[in-house]
Amino acid sequence: MAEAYELPLLLFAGFRALIDELHAELARRGHPDVRPAYGFAMQAIGPRGASASEIGRRLGVSKQAAGKTVDRLAALGYVERVDDPADARRKLIRLTPRGIDSLTQSAEIFEILRTRWVAKLGAGRVETIESSLRAVVPGPNYPVDVPGWFGILAG
């Protein structure tokens, strides 16, 4: 029988294995500078864009920490700052075509990685893992505040 402390470690190790494989493949596909925290930030920005304050709230970090991440993503060409059509006093951060491509590529790679898990474990076991986790994970939305929760982008 497994020790109770192993469950969170195994869940994290599975997550880490998937994320490490994702980023290795993203690098091969032309996105060598994308880091896990950047992926969460781009998810927080979303398809409609967001202000730095909104990004900070979604990531669970300060506006300043979110701003530093946005600065880095902008320097790498993944996001841009534009005037907010709803409020001329603020800037909206939007994904560039390069940012959208990195998220599109990520979705494709996750499909490949899930297929590998199915090949190793069988479709039924993977579906059981997924449905079991859905039963214990609160809410229908997936959190993007991992950087703040881990203190990765604390500022």
Rank of each mutant, 00 (worst) to 15 (best):
A4E: 14
Y5E: 14
Y5R: 14
E6L: 15
E6H: 13
L7Y: 12
L11Y: 08
L11C: 08
L11G: 04
A13W: 08
F15M: 12
R16A: 14
A17R: 15
I19M: 14
E21M: 11
E21H: 11
H23Y: 13
H23W: 07
E25S: 05
L26D: 03
L26P: 05
L26I: 02
A27G: 15
R28F: 08
H31I: 03
P32L: 13
P32W: 10
R35A: 07
R35Q: 13
G39K: 05
G39W: 02
M42G: 01
A44R: 07
R48D: 14
G49S: 11
S51W: 04
I55K: 11
I55P: 09
R58C: 08
R58K: 14
G60W: 05
V61S: 07
S62T: 15
K63P: 06
Q64I: 13
Q64Y: 11
A65P: 07
G67H: 09
K68R: 15
K68T: 09
T69M: 15
V70P: 04
D71R: 15
L73V: 01
L73T: 00
L76N: 06
Y78H: 04
Y78Q: 07
V79C: 06
V79E: 06
V79Y: 04
E80K: 08
R81D: 06
V82N: 03
V82W: 04
D83W: 02
D83R: 10
D84R: 08
A86Q: 12
D87P: 02
A88I: 02
K91N: 04
L92I: 07
I93V: 15
I93A: 08
R94K: 13
L95Q: 03
T96Q: 05
P97G: 03
D101M: 00
E108G: 02
E108H: 04
F110D: 05
I112W: 10
R114V: 13
R114K: 13
T115N: 14
A119H: 10
L121G: 07
L121F: 14
G122K: 09
A123R: 15
A123E: 15
R125P: 04
T128D: 09
S131N: 09
S131E: 14
S131A: 13
R134Q: 12
A135F: 02
V137S: 04
V137A: 03
P138W: 01
G139K: 00
N141T: 01
Y142T: 02
V144F: 00
V146K: 01
G148Q: 00
F150W: 06
F150Y: 04
A154F: 01
G155I: 03
